[in-house]
């Protein structure tokens, strides 16, 4: 999840910390912090909950042809991170050679610059590094 400096001003509790949203009906966590509806049970009351940051790579790919905003970073790893709190987050895995990533690798979250926007605005987001 990426957030520009402008969007930051309207963010609620998360303020760029690593949050997920818990459904008050079924207790299931949904990824990131902008959810209004629980895909598990259909509940409409979700509350912010901070994650500790630890998780495990359950799936990953190596991107060789990035979109414009990520030019120069290729090849880079994007993974599905199964967080310890039982929610799956798609996110970049950084500071590691693609060959050193595998399913089951333990990772922890880190706040990084994600990209530059079209007008030079900086976007921040959560990436993961190998523990």
């Amino acid at each position: 999840m990426t957030v520009s400096a402008i969007e930051y001003t309207r963010l609620g509790p998360p303020k760029l910390r690593l949050y997920a949203m818990r459904c008050s009906s079924c207790g299931k966590l949904s990824p990131w912090w902008e959810k209004n509806h629980c895909y598990e049970c259909g509940g409409g009351d979700l509350t912010h909950e901070e994650l500790a940051g630890g998780g495990e790579i359950t799936n990953y790919t190596v991107v060789y042809y990035p979109p414009r905003d990520f030019l120069g970073q290729e090849p880079y790893v994007v993974g599905h991170i199964q967080m310890d709190e039982d929610v799956l987050l798609p996110a970049p895995v950084v500071d590691v050679a693609p060959d050193d990533v595998e399913v089951g690798t333990r990772v922890t979250s880190t706040l990084r610059r994600m990209k530059l926007g079209h007008e030079g605005d900086i976007y921040y987001g959560h990436k993961f590094v190998v523990e």
Partner: peptide, 23 residues
């Protein structure tokens, strides 16, 4: 916000699907 501007593209999103299918 949540996926594709985190460095995922359509090819890489589908690559995740392919790897999961293989597994």
């Amino acid at each position: 916000k949540e996926e594709y501007f985190s460095g995922l593209t359509f090819p890489s999103g589908v690559a995740l699907t392919a790897r999961k299918y293989m597994q």
